[in-house]
C-alpha cells in the first residue's frame, strides 16, 4: 500500500477539470460548433512521423527477408507466372476489343465513362491504437492532395476513406470498421443497398428482404450513391445468405481486400463529379 504524497490542491479538482475539458471537446464536435481538426491534424503528423521512423528498420528487415530468403521458390514461380502472363495477354486482347466497342456505344448514347480520377500512392505506417476503431495511418496528407473522405483503394478493391487528414499523414477508416457504411450494387442483379462494417473480418448487407435475389458468390461493387466512394469499385463477394431474422435477411460479404496484408494503397485525390442518372441503372 502506498501513501498519497501531500498535495496543496485536492486531486478531484484536477479530475473535474480534465473531465470537463473532454466533455466540452466532445460537445463542440457533436454540435459542430468548433473545428478540432487542427489539434487532430497536429497529433496525426507528430505521431505518424514517429511511427514511420520507428517502423523503417522493421520494414528494412522485412525487405531483406523478402529479397533474399524469399527467393528460394523464384524459379518455380517464374514458370507459373509466365504461363499466367500468356493467358492474360490473350484475354487482354479480347477485352480491348470489348472496351473499344463500349467507348463507341457510350459516344453514340452521349454517356460519360466512369473515371478513377487522380491517385497518389501511400504507405501504411501504423494501425489504430484503440480497440474500438479499425483505422490505419498512411504517410500522405493534405500536402499530397489527400483530404477528408478521399477514397482509399488497392488493385483488389476498396480499402476505406480518409476520416482525418494532417499535412503529411492521414487516418483511414477501413470499410470493415463498425462505423463504416458504403452504398453498393450487386453486379449481376443491379440491386442497391448499404454495406456496413461489423468490426470483424466481414461486412453485412443492410435491409435485404425476401424480394432480393441475392445469392452466394454474387459480386458487390460501390454504387456511388453515398457521394463518397465513386461508382464501380470492387467491395467483395457474398459468402453467406441466411434466413430472415425479423424483417430482413442476414447477408455477409467477404471484402475483396485482404486487410491483414496491406502495405501500400492508392489515395484518390480528385473528387469525381456526381454520378449522372444516365449511368445508374
Amino acid at each position: 500500500m502506498r501513501t498519497i504524497v501531500a498535495s496543496k490542491k485536492p486531486a478531484w479538482i484536477t479530475l473535474a477539470v480534465a473531465l470537463v475539458f473532454h466533455t466540452l471537446l466532445l460537445s463542440v464536435q457533436s454540435s459542430k460548433r468548433a473545428d478540432t481538426s487542427f489539434l487532430r491534424g497536429w497529433l496525426i503528423d507528430s505521431i505518424g512521423t514517429l511511427e514511420k521512423v520507428v517502423d523503417a528498420p522493421v520494414e528494412g528487415i522485412e525487405n531483406v527477408w523478402k529479397g533474399y530468403v524469399g527467393l528460394v521458390h523464384v524459379n518455380r514461380d517464374n514458370v507459373k507466372l509466365q504461363a499466367e502472363n500468356d493467358q492474360l495477354r490473350s484475354e487482354l486482347a479480347r477485352r480491348d476489343e470489348g472496351a473499344l466497342e463500349l467507348t463507341r456505344l457510350r459516344q453514340m448514347m452521349g454517356m460519360q465513362a466512369p473515371e478513377m480520377g487522380k491517385t497518389v500512392a501511400a504507405r501504411i505506417v501504423g494501425k489504430s491504437p484503440s480497440l474500438t476503431g479499425q483505422a490505419l495511418t498512411i504517410d500522405k496528407g493534405i500536402r499530397s492532395g489527400v483530404q477528408r473522405d478521399s477514397t482509399i483503394v488497392t488493385r483488389d478493391g476498396v480499402v476505406g476513406r480518409v476520416i482525418s487528414a494532417g499535412d503529411y499523414y492521414s487516418v483511414v477508416q477501413l470499410i470493415i470498421d463498425s462505423q463504416s457504411a458504403v452504398g453498393f450494387i450487386v453486379r449481376s442483379s443491379r440491386r442497391l443497398g448499404i454495406l456496413k462494417g461489423t468490426g470483424g473480418n466481414e461486412l453485412e448487407l443492410e435491409y435485404i428482404d425476401d424480394d432480393n435475389d441475392i445469392k452466394q458468390g454474387d459480386e458487390v461493387i460501390t454504387s456511388g450513391q453515398d457521394q463518397i466512394y465513386p461508382k464501380g469499385l470492387t467491395l467483395g463477394v457474398v459468402v453467406f445468405v441466411g434466413p430472415k431474422q425479423g424483417n430482413f435477411k442476414v447477408v455477409r460479404v467477404r471484402p475483396s481486400v485482404n486487410f491483414g496484408r496491406l502495405e501500400e494503397v492508392l489515395c484518390m485525390t480528385e473528387h469525381l463529379p456526381e454520378i449522372s442518372t444516365g449511368q445508374a441503372q
Partner: peptide, 12 residues
C-alpha cells in the same frame, strides 16, 4: 487522434 474516434472519447 490516431483512431479517428471523436476527440475526448478515450481521453475521458
Amino acid at each position: 487522434s490516431m483512431s479517428g474516434a471523436p476527440m475526448g472519447t478515450n481521453g475521458f
